[in-house]
Design a binder for these strands. Structure first.
Lengths: 242, 242
DNA sequence: CGATTAATTGAACCTGGTCAATCGGAGTGG
DNA sequence: CCACTCCGATTGACCAGGTTCAATTAATCG
């Protein structure tokens, strides 16, 4: 039994642009079903020509890319509301893999109808482009992190970004956010070794800035953390939901 | 006197999808003029809400991002055919700056007409999304480079990518390509120090793999270089031109 | 209870950064 | 024409941020 789009728990959140009744109706038509997966389930494979695209409704995941020598780069963390599989949708091939890290519920769209959908609803084409531009923006920031920030700056930056995104989604209570990833995931996202990531996190805890244990990220001093990470505490702007 | 789109030297190149007469006509309408700039001219500023978007017709440039501590990250090199300013066009704010590195000629579009243009021509909306997805794909590769490749692997990867892009544009003669950037540009693109970038380039020259002097990049052994850079020699696929 | 996975910590080591000096070419002014 | 300056490239010496290796703890699970 799939949820009606009008009852979707996401599109009422402040982070997302409100959708008109009409928009909800044709999104409902575009939607072909729902998918529920367990932690560790691969959703899309790098290099694959997937037939489906998704919007994450709940749960979290990871976008990652493997090198031929076995090294892994984590590109970003997947949060509720994220659109997954755009590259397969337009390029016909994913440049990275996507994997669930928690139990996830996803809204499923059919790639074969993507083109006619965009053609019929140009405002949604614009929204897709918007999302893609935001992703590009974020990857640019990540690039600057790996290239120019030191380890402690990078970790601080990452925790701030994650926390703000979680906050915008209303997932933060008492400055705490569920962040169900491993230190290895974060290390591979920042291009740091696991050991050094661990020691850097320990430093942040010592300095009473942030603590991340048992899958819970607690931020004790967001402003100081942001300053250390050479970044701001601006909230993500409202974004469209697919 | 601006060039007619149908006489555009770019859209006949193999790298770009051929455009129908009809497409050429409405691109011609969308185009508001041409811009010619000298090396060093800033085209778009990070954080700005630019009124214009461009397609590079000739010359090369650089996309870059500054951190508040003064560090610079080069995101990518701009080649002929690149669309510039998508972020300003849809997000209303650039996440990076774009600067000319050579004399450049650019095709100019007006942002205020962007939305109505996309609405009127959904196939172009799709192409824009396609370009954005390719950019995202590339930034993902860059992230993997900064995060996972060693210095010599990173430099090799970069030279291979640049060379293949140049080759696809027909800019390569006798395995040589004009690559009018400084070692500092490359260093800031790869997150390496200038000194180490210089020494790494020297190694590649010693090993008879690639030489880059006086703005000319010469590749002596593309396959070996690609292998060292943990990448492939696949040519970029055909792309739309805006 | 053994096996597996994540986190943690110490110690040795090395890739790549920083500092500093030099060189060559291009432009500029006297 | 020469002196001077500026910029990019180059090289050597030293150093440190971060990696690698290795061992331990703790939690989960069949």
């Amino acid at each position: 039994m799939t949820t009606q789009c009008e009852n979707c728990p996401l599109h009422r959140k402040d982070l997302f642009k409100t959708m008109s009744r009409e928009e909800l109706e044709y999104m409902q038509k575009f939607k072909v079903g729902e998918l529920t997966v367990d932690p560790g389930t691969p959703l899309l494979m790098e290099g694959s020509n997937a037939a489906q695209m998704f919007t994450a409704l709940s749960g979290m995941g990871i976008r990652e890319k493997m090198l031929e020598n076995g090294e892994r780069q984590v590109l970003s963390f997947v949060f509720p509301g994220d659109f997954i599989g755009l590259q397969a949708g337009v390029l016909g091939e994913m440049g990275h893999s996507v994997e669930a890290r928690t139990h996830m519920r996803l809204c499923v769209f059919d790639r074969s109808e993507f083109w006619s959908f965009l053609r019929a609803h140009p405002s949604r084409a614009f929204d897709i482009t918007w999302l893609s531009a935001v992703e590009e923006h974020f990857l640019g920031e990540s690039l600057a992190t790996l290239g120019q920030r030191t380890a402690i700056q990078a970790v601080s930056w990452a925790l701030v970004r994650v926390f703000l995104r979680g906050h915008a989604l209303g997932l933060v209570t008492h400055n705490q956010l569920s962040f169900p990833f491993t230190q290895r995931d974060l290390a591979d996202a920042l291009g740091l070794s696991l050991v050094h990531t661990n020691k850097t996190l320990a430093k942040l805890k010592d300095h009473q800035l942030a603590a991340w244990q048992d899958g819970i990220l607690q931020i004790n001093n967001l402003d100081k953390l942001a300053e250390l990470g050479i970044t701001s505490t601006d909230m993500p702007q409202q974004r469209p939901l697919m």
